[in-house]
Amino acid sequence: MIIDEEQKRQHLRRSKRIVVGAVVFLAAIIIAVPVLAQMLKTYVFLRFPMDYFMIAHGAVFAVMALVFWFISAKERADSEINTITPL
């Protein structure tokens, strides 16, 4: 299937939104996790102090979740446009 210019521009805009959203979320993980960890230090989860758990597990799980979301969002965007373009 050949895509026209308007479809291509829509796809590029959508891709850019996905990328910007992902970068913002990644920045939020890096900044928010230490801040939240200090606020939640009195709580306990799976016998871990909550601040420790957020740093040593939570940040990594958040990054994994972000990566899996990003891959599926990009696959959906690509499949909707079926990106095969003419030279």
Binding site: I29, I30, A59
Partner: peptide, 8 residues
Amino acid sequence: IGVCAGLA
């Protein structure tokens, strides 16, 4: 965290 975030 830096290594995982770098891959992401």
